[in-house]
Design a protein around this nucleic acid. Structure first.
Lengths: 338, 338
DNA sequence: CTGAAAGCGCTTACAG
DNA sequence: CTGAAAGCGCTTACAG
């Protein structure tokens, strides 16, 4: 972080002209491979940042959500914001309006503003968008990837398969045998991983997987409510439900209340995420703790490292999750014990 | 929004030199009052925005929180983000780390980035900071002012006094006479207003105000829990508690649960804000609905209007609030009826 | 208080 | 593919 380097200095060191460096910076194609490599090398080494007439420009980092969603989003925002603030970097927040790729307007804004980097939550870039950022040397990191992400894209996730298995094992250990699961949307990777962990745990416990107990809903309260009602109205209803998120679990709470079922006496419920609300509801919610804030912090550090040309130890990281056992789970009603 | 105007064009129109316009833009003091006025007039009329060599720069708006706080913050962020997105403006998010003024780093970043404007939530600028933004012609709006705000500072709030009164009247109408209130921090204006509304409602109902039933805590769950416990352990405990926020109300729920009191049978609880969680908890929470999202939208529109030199209809706006009666309130236990 | 002059960091044709 | 030349929008001394 010495004195700011100018394009002219880089040109001098690379033994090329100022316009050539400018071309490299702007991702033009009419630069020889060797020249480009040399210039890029220098740019990284000296941490070149564009500086505009008279003004030192102020560093930013972009955080892009597919869609804001309550407490979940706040945890991530807080994590990114804290690291950004401590590094003197401003946080620019965007939403894709539910899509799983940023909108073209965002790309344009990024090419204009040239943030240090971008963090994409629950979304990804298409090949074209990726190329545009790469040409401008703006690194990006994906948090909680929705679908398969190319191997060379840095990504921070968590151990979803393990999480699904732990939650289910907790229930089988209590003696439950009719355990339902409500997953998030099937397109979403983490959701499929959790359901697979659930299936694995059932098999390990020698319990046959009943497809009618595997439901799909969105991650919100209404999804949990709808699927919860459907499950609890089954002729042979489950004694436990593993929900795909804490919000879904609250929906299941509502469904149980409507049907006059008491948690955990008549029904055990496990959530996922461990948002603060899990400790505020009655009964407090047993759930899988996902370290959202730490994921956000790590993603931010990773993207800042990449922006500075530091090669990080790993481009892919899945953080561990753990069970938080509270009051929403208990052994099944006696009549259901096998 | 015609073609972008340059400093040179403004200079031409004003009949001054380019450097003079530059000085006005940078808030230098060595410009004659008349000249400055003429140049500023032109700048507003033509919506001048600084443009840097070769790049059209991308418009931003700053949203500054004193401190992020869960769902409450998300509502505001979502409101600002939606309007900003529809106007093609990027949202820059900052936190003051609990202070009630932005940090100097933020000011510096703003002077550098030159956003269209800034929205301050639960915080304000000191005279010096204000002067710096004004010199750069960057307008700002305060949302939910903490303390007294200078008369000429645009501010969006809500009808806190009415809210406090409505909540209390709802309880007196149910027959409660020992009604406690938990306010937010005393430094916070909206908090004092609500407590005054409470006092007024009691007096109108011919109920004497008992100072031991007026408590102060922070707006979080823990504040409600602590003050709730204290109130419920009083020799003659209240039959109803009006909490300063939904989060505090959840803290009161916890306290009641710990003491084996059932809501609403043994205790009625009213919250404030009407965050989504109010509908998710059991029993669902009776609360005062504060239109946070609309407040954020209005603040954003206001600041964008100011940035464009449009004189808004009003600089100060307090939005109406209304009661959302749910399951956490009921008549007091019979033994308490007078 | 004002502006001619010099300069900054960068980009855009365009000739080779 | 490369870079000399021209130019852009802006700012900074500094002389008057």
């Amino acid at each position: 972080m010495a004195q700011r380097v100018t394009i002219a200095e880089i040109a001098g060191m690379a033994g090329v002209s100022v316009p050539t460096v400018s071309k490299v910076l702007n991702g033009r194609t009419d630069v020889a491979e060797g020249t480009r490599a040399r210039v890029e090398q220098l740019i990284q080494e000296h941490g070149y940042r564009r500086r505009t007439a008279g003004t030192t420009n102020s560093p930013m980092i972009d955080l892009v959500f597919s869609q804001f969603g309550g407490e979940w989003a706040i945890q991530l925002i807080a994590g990114v914001e804290e690291v950004a603030r401590s590094e003197g970097v401003q946080l620019v927040l965007s939403e894709c309006g539910g899509e799983w790729r940023p909108r073209q307007e965002w790309i344009e804004s990024v090419l204009n503003r040239r943030p240090l980097g971008a963090i994409l939550v629950f979304s990804d870039l298409d090949a074209d968008q990726r190329a545009q950022l790469e040409a401008r040397r703006i690194p990006f990191v994906v948090v909680d990837p929705v679908g398969d992400v190319a191997d060379d894209v840095p990504a921070i996730g968590s151990a979803n398969w393990n999480g699904g298995r732990m939650a289910t094992q907790h229930l089988t250990a209590l003696g439950h045998r009719r355990i339902a699961v409500i997953g998030g949307p099937v397109e979403v990777l983490c959701s499929r991983q959790r359901v697979d962990g659930y299936t694995d745990a059932l098999r390990s416990a020698g319990i046959e997987v009943d497809p009618s107990l595997i439901r799909v809903g969105d991650f919100g309260v209404s999804g949990g409510h709808r699927e919860g009602l459907a499950l609890l109205r089954l002729p042979e209803r489950p004694t436990a439900i593993f929900a795909g998120s804490d919000m879904q679990a609250l929906g299941v709470y509502q469904a149980a209340r409507e049907l006059g079922l008491e948690i955990p006496r008549d029904l055990s419920v496990v959530g996922y995420d461990d948002l603060p609300v899990a400790q505020w509801v009655g009964p407090t919610l047993t759930t899988v703790h996902q370290p959202l804030r730490r994921m956000a912090e790590l993603a931010t550090r990773l993207v800042l490292d990449l922006a500075r040309g530091i090669t990080p130890a790993a481009l892919r990281l899945d953080l561990a999750v753990d069970m938080r056992v509270r009051d929403s789970t208990a052994p099944p009603p006696l009549s259901n014990l096998s």
